[in-house]
Design a protein around this nucleic acid. Structure first.
Lengths: 341, 341
DNA sequence: ACTTCCACCGAAATCGATTCCAGAACACTA
DNA sequence: TAGTGTTCTGGAATCGATTTCGGTGGAAGT
């Protein structure tokens, strides 16, 4: 196995017959290095197959070339796409990505923030579970590295952010439902401690207001981002005396739970209940009927998040914001109400 | 922001009026520490809020408490689940997880292996894209840290592995098709450079052989793990003069591409063509008709992989192997042939 | 009273790289 | 020839922790 005698800068220096400082100067191409010395050092480096030890470099420089990424559930394709997009960009820039899994537990947000900061990451990519957690904000204030929020808004924190325009997509989606004649429209979304939830709710309200329709409180269910909440809420909505004729699921977990509930109840989607999923996953198109969605580019979110980090690491002092658009895509799951036969 | 003056072991020593070595001894509870000294040091640690710097510890100890994980596509829920399972276990054991994304490019396997080894990870969790790549094997031989293969088999390499019993599941699945009367059964699977592909093919062959049926070469398509291959292969199979009456997709990407092709062609799954997906994703149950699957516990794979790593890090010298079972689950996508009306 | 031993603690080396500082070698000018 | 600069190079300090080694003081043994 690894019988590689660990070749250090000292070994290179010995081999080349120069001082270690000279080796370092050559490798980091500092000024004041003669051609002869450079050649000898590079030859020795080549012969020994020397590669500097990143751990030692980190100790000396204070930079670890590592980024910490905090998400709720890495197995969720939404976050998977984000992480993938970010990792691609960061890898090309010479950074590695540490991942986490906070799994619905807000305290784990704090734990991972502290863990990653202790590990001296060069930056944090954050999809937090709540924006108002005091412990979390306190932990982030300790950070001396750049922070990038993914579709989150933590007031008073100096951080860049990728911000999705949920509003436009939802307004278009609900507007379409209204235009088709729907009057009782249900919404299942996350709690307002997350920007995405607030924006979706705001778009929902706005679309109804624009149509002069009242918001029926019993049709709006805000809860934790988990399939089970989508499932339970859907059953509740179906059981109302005056149930909705259309339903918007504001998040992919809700979509999953909601569809499961509709299948269990044998509800004919489109015919009996129009359905829209905010957030697109490819298989929704293969559903029968295909599910209308509000789409955004998840990988691009990760990509832009990484860009923002790199920009700050590159010296940009002020927080920057990158918008990501959303589009409503109509599919057969949305039909005019009362086409029940 | 971070106005925290960086509290080091030296600061603690000064505060407590002792030598740095004593502080270290207290913190790593070595022997030869008097109660008085321990108390003074711990008090100073408390007052200053001292936390040792992991980078310095890594340089000194050679251990980084970091594990590298190499997968093809972190956005794929299969790998997402694996990574999640592994991260949970490793986090609890004090390790952090570096992720990668090799994205169908075999050279990136090698790149990431070398990158992670250079970064001195304490272990590697590997879902390689090919088992016979000489460069990759050479790179892995350089490793002086434990290796764990995820559903892979690289002969001659000293590594533990999580091994899925694809064989049993596929035999049951194809056996069921045969029992229902299917005679022409198609298979779309990965290339034999990956154990999973080989085992699925072996199970497929075995099930047919057991039934005394010949393997029709034109019905077996082995190619790269990508939805597009599943899509194209499915179209080809449908266009055969004597097309299959049942189709097994050996991998979730193939399932996705294959289902898309069947939808495009308007094939009535179950009635016109029975369909089985090897690897389960939750939405397959919501498909119309629900898709039969060969299921395995992905998160458990990650969990066991992490356990194997920890076991080796804990001193276990010999490679260990952990089996993961597969189960065939019948759903309505599988019907007797010729129920076309 | 003198050795021996042990418990305890501090100084310094170490991990591997980078960088500051000082000095050597050489050229050029007055 | 002496003096002044350049240009290049080596030694040593540094990053922050761990660990070896050696030394001190006190207690026990003869």
């Amino acid at each position: 196995m690894g019988r590689a005698e660990k070749v250090t800068v000292r070994a290179v220096a010995e081999r080349a017959g120069v001082a270690v400082s000279s080796v370092s100067r050559v490798l980091n191409d500092h000024a004041d290095v003669s051609d002869g010395l450079r050649a000898r050092v590079l030859a020795a480096v080549e012969e020994l197959g020397y590669q500097p030890d990143p751990v030692a470099q980190s100790l000396r420089s204070g930079a670890t070339r590592t980024i910490g990424c905090i998400v709720r559930d890495i197995a969720n394709p939404l976050f998977g796409d984000i992480v993938k997009g970010a990792e691609n960009v960061l890898h090309d820039a010479g950074y590695s990505l540490l991942v986490s899994n906070t799994d619905g537990d807000i305290r784990r947000d704090v734990d991972y923030i502290e863990l990653f900061l202790r590990r001296r990451v060069d930056g944090l990519l954050l999809s937090l579970q709540a924006e108002d957690n005091a412990d979390m904000i306190a932990a982030l204030r300790q950070a001396s590295c750049p922070l990038v929020l993914l579709d989150r808004d933590v007031p008073g924190l100096s951080a860049s952010a990728v911000l999705c325009d949920h509003f436009t997509g939802i307004v278009a989606a609900v507007g379409h439902l209204v235009a088709l004649g729907h009057r009782r429209i249900g919404l299942i979304a996350g709690q307002p401690v997350i920007r995405a939830s607030r924006e979706r709710k705001r778009g929902f309200d706005e679309a109804l207001a624009k149509a002069g329709l009242p918001v029926a409180p019993e049709l709006v269910r805000l809860g934790p981002y988990a399939a089970e909440f989508g499932h339970a809420s859907t059953l509740e909505l179906l059981d109302l005396a005056d149930p909705p004729t259309a339903l918007v699921a504001g998040g992919i977990q809700f979509t999953m739970g909601s569809l499961r509930a509709l299948h269990e109840r044998g509800v004919r989607i489109g015919a009996e209940l129009s359905f829209i999923s905010a957030d697109d996953i490819d298989w929704l198109e293969l559903h029968d009927p295909p599910i209308s969605v509000v789409k955004r580019d998840h990988m691009r979110m990760g990509h832009l998040g990484a860009d923002l980090l790199l920009r700050t690491l590159g010296g940009e002092a002020h927080p920057c914001f990158e918008p990501v658009g959303t589009t409503y895509i109509h599919r057969a799951s949305v039909q005019p109400p009362g086409v029940s036969r």
